[in-house]
Simulated scan of single mutants.
Amino acid sequence: MTEDVRRVFRMDNEVLAFRFTATVSDRAGAQPRERLTGPARLTMWLRATGFDVADVAPADLAAAVALREAIYRIGSAIAAGKRPDSKDVRILNKAASSGQAKAALEQGRAQWHLTDTAPVGDALGVLATDAIHLLGGPDRHRVKNCEGPGCAGLYLDTSRAGNRRWCSMNTCGNKVKKARLAAS
């Protein structure tokens, strides 16, 4: 039986690297929920994201989780106006430099071509590069942590006023609105 990727993962973040960090949910809650519970789950997420990965080894999963957490900690530091930890920056830079993925436009859609020798490393390189472009780019001041109950997920505030509070109005924003209605 195959699982529906949208029931397992949140895929609504417009920033690829931040969508990857959302493979842990309820980060600010009492019990954060790990969604990459095994190599098969990482394979599922990568495929749903457009990376043609056939198999993920346990070592690939460990590297992916380390990268995901480095991206999350760097993003959270930047959102708080702090300097990211140098160890996290090294993890991010190493993943980005190790990847050999090639972008291509095929049938009007962007595709990633991964090497046969290290497809997961290539995919992680794309994720790391995406994070670097955002976290080190001109919009870094728009990186925020969600204020939704228990969430703390990363997002890019693209609102004109720069006052967005939730990673997604459809999830965290609705939870807050429903709680307010129930309380009144």
Rank of each mutant, 00 (worst) to 15 (best):
T2W: 14
T2V: 10
R6C: 11
R6L: 13
T21S: 12
A22L: 15
A22V: 02
A28S: 12
A28L: 08
A28H: 02
G29F: 01
E34L: 08
E34Y: 03
R35D: 06
L36K: 05
L36M: 03
P39S: 00
P39K: 00
M44V: 00
M44G: 00
M44S: 03
R47A: 04
G50T: 00
F51T: 02
A57E: 14
P58G: 01
P58Y: 04
A59W: 07
A64L: 07
A64E: 03
V65M: 10
A66I: 03
A66F: 05
I71P: 03
R73Y: 03
A79K: 06
S86Y: 08
S86L: 12
K87S: 11
R90I: 07
L92D: 01
N93H: 06
Q100L: 06
A101E: 02
A104C: 00
Q107M: 05
A110H: 14
A110Y: 08
W112F: 08
L114V: 04
D116S: 12
G121A: 04
L124C: 09
A128C: 11
I132T: 13
H133I: 03
L134Q: 09
G136F: 04
R140V: 01
R142V: 02
V143Q: 05
A152V: 05
L154R: 09
N163T: 15
R164C: 07
R165S: 13
W166N: 06
C167I: 05
T171H: 10
G173L: 09
G173V: 02
G173M: 05
N174P: 06
K178Q: 13
L181G: 13
